[in-house]
């Protein structure tokens, strides 16, 4: 009989048929995320929204807690809360007199703390907290894999649909506006995509590491790319390699999976520095 598959483990279990099943699901979910994280992460880098993405990720815990309290599917609760938070933050950033990094810090730590407090009321979740902070790719279910791929492909389709205006707005917002791009709407669509992907990534790399998966592969891809589309595709490939490499390392070295994926991405980034920038 197959061994019992526990949902709390962060390390790869001992050998057996179950392990293949674990790895297959973990790899599939990770690759699904890498597909969308590459292009979306490239835009995060170009638009200098790394800290914005981080603030969104910090709000995810609150969404999780509310989801449990209101008996809603966690991924949906997180996506909805992240989206609402993203819209609020975008509105605040355009109006507030505070510097953006100060405002984002306040927002990120407030929502993270609120999330932790809310989670303290949900008794059953307390043990799992670390897996929500750092991800638990090995606990993903078949339904999670379907959710990640469905969400990733949906996000990718939307991103491709808004690609040209989004790129024009990311290069120079004023120029794009004079040329007739509705930059406000494009920005809104983009932050909603970001919220969706944060919600998808939560289970895989966790609240604290989500932005790493967006930013690091894109930064590594920059070295090799001569055009925006090339950078987006290379970032997906690098993300995919990091997922596979990280999971493999996790298996061999018995290290936590989410951080292993991030370290693998960072290693590729470090290696990319050895190459001369092409454009």
């Amino acid at each position: 009989m197959a061994m019992c598959i526990t949902r709390t483990t962060m390390r790869i279990p001992t050998t057996g048929i179950a392990m293949d099943e674990f790895l297959w699901r973990a790899g599939a979910a990770g690759l699904g995320l890498a597909v969308i994280a590459g292009p979306l992460g490239s835009f995060v880098v170009w638009r200098r929204l790394a800290f914005f993405g981080d603030a969104l990720a910090h709000s995810a815990l609150l969404g999780l807690a509310l989801g449990f309290m209101l008996q809603i599917e966690p991924a949906i609760a997180i996506a909805v809360l992240c989206a609402a938070f993203a819209l609020t933050l975008t509105g605040l950033l355009s109006r507030a007199k505070l510097p953006p990094d100060t405002l984002l810090s306040i927002a990120a730590f407030t929502t993270l703390s609120l999330g932790l407090i809310a989670l303290a009321f949900v008794e059953t979740l307390r043990v799992d907290l670390i897996s929500y902070l750092f991800g638990d790719i090995l606990s993903v279910t078949r339904a999670d894999v379907a959710l990640v791929w469905g969400g990733a492909l949906l996000a990718l389709a939307v991103l491709i649909a808004i690609w040209r205006p989004l790129l024009a707005a990311s290069v120079d917002e004023d120029l794009a506006r004079v040329e007739g791009v509705d930059t406000g709407r494009v920005r809104l669509a983009f932050v909603l995509l970001l919220a969706l992907v944060v919600a998808l990534a939560m289970k895989i790399v966790g609240v604290l590491l989500v932005t790493a998966l967006l930013v690091i592969p894109a930064a590594a891809a920059r070295r090799f790319a001569q055009g925006p589309e090339a950078m987006a595709i290379y970032a997906s490939v690098i993300g995919a390699i990091a997922v596979i490499g990280g999971l493999f390392a996790s298996l061999k070295l018995d290290t936590p999976s989410g951080p292993s994926v991030v370290v693998a991405a960072a290693a590729i980034f470090a290696a990319s520095l050895l190459f001369k920038r092409r454009a």
Binding site: V45, L167, V171, A176, G180, R222, G227, P228
Partner: peptide, 26 residues
């Protein structure tokens, strides 16, 4: 209207050629 801004806020992490940049006008 054709607009030439005072400075360009393009991020150095965005690889883009001159022709592609000009073509972004649509």
């Amino acid at each position: 209207v054709g607009y030439m801004p005072q400075k360009l806020a393009i991020d150095p992490n965005l690889p883009i050629s001159v022709a592609r940049f000009v073509g972004l006008a649509g």
